[in-house]
């Protein structure tokens, strides 16, 4: 083969591999999408062509499944978690980014480390405590433990954004006559706003997809969407068409949010180890 042919051959091989990888990645997602629009009969056959129906989406919101309640719980819990976490994380991130604190490294590593603690370890004492104070199966309890998951990511991610704001700008504002709090309000917050939104979305996704805490702490009133998946069982087995419809309701909003902030996903998830 000539050099040119060799190159063309390699390009073809690479394109083939890329297409294959993309298929492997998308087929399971597409499969769920298809099943969600299949009727009860069609879902038990390997059909590619079928008469699409929206009835599954209607069914999951009716008795006995009531997915609407779970959707409401998930939205409320994830939103409240973010609304509490982001301001607190922003304050801390600013301080970590701009000042030298006593024990700064210890604090930062500890915050990082808490993210790596297995969730089962954290949930055991919480379960006992919530049982004693009556917080089991409440959204408030769920919000509280979700903060454990979200806070480290939020602090590290926002710290990364604030590190990227040039110090010059803040110093200029100080010389121009601002106090530190005015600098934070007038300069840092507007400049960090896109970053704060990104961190908020990232944390929302984490809280939305959280499974173990909700599995253990909720039973009826505060059940979230991922736990709701367990509902779609009948005597004859799993109700795949309904499971898939519920699955779409869980994943589609996250797909949209994730695509919005995809550039920052890596930085957020690796907490600054990869920039």
């Amino acid at each position: 083969m000539t050099g040119k042919q060799k190159k063309a051959f390699w390009n073809a091989v690479q394109t083939g591999l890329i297409v294959m990888a993309t298929l492997i990645m998308l087929v399971p997602i597409a499969w769920i999408f298809m099943a969600a629009f299949k009727s009860h009969v069609d879902v038990y056959q390997l059909k590619l062509f079928f008469r699409p129906t929206l009835e599954n989406f209607a069914l999951v919101f009716r008795e006995p499944y009531n997915l609407g309640e779970k959707l409401w719980n998930s939205t409320l819990v994830a939103l409240a978690t973010v609304v509490i976490a982001i301001p607190i994380a922003t304050m801390a991130a600013y301080s970590f980014s701009r000042f030298r604190l006593r024990g700064e490294t210890v604090m930062l590593v500890t915050i990082l480390a808490t993210q790596f603690v297995p969730a089962v370890v954290i949930i055991l004492p919480f379960f006992v405590m919530f049982r004693d104070v009556g917080l089991l199966d409440t959204r408030l309890g769920l919000i509280l433990v979700n903060l454990a998951i979200v806070m480290p990511f939020a602090i590290w991610m926002i710290k990364g954004f604030i590190d990227g704001i040039p110090l010059d700008t803040e110093e200029a504002a100080m010389v121009d006559g601002s106090s530190r709090l005015q600098v934070i309000r007038n300069i840092v917050l507007p400049m960090a706003a896109p970053g704060l939104l990104t961190a908020g979305i990232f944390c929302f996704i984490l809280a939305w997809n959280e499974f173990l805490f909700a599995l253990i702490l909720t039973s009826k009133d505060a059940v979230t969407l991922p736990i709701g998946l367990a509902l779609f069982k009948a005597e004859e087995g799993d109700l795949w068409n309904l499971l898939s419809a519920a699955g779409i309701i869980i994943m589609l909003p996250m797909f949209i949010l994730a695509l919005m902030i995809r550039k920052f996903f890596v930085q957020g998830m690796t907490m600054g180890a990869v920039r």
Partner: peptide, 16 residues
């Protein structure tokens, strides 16, 4: 597209 599977709840991956 690479972001999609990661935005999926692991529980849902298990189900699918």
């Amino acid at each position: 597209l690479l972001i999609l599977p990661f935005a999926m709840s692991p529980a849902l991956i298990g189900v699918s």
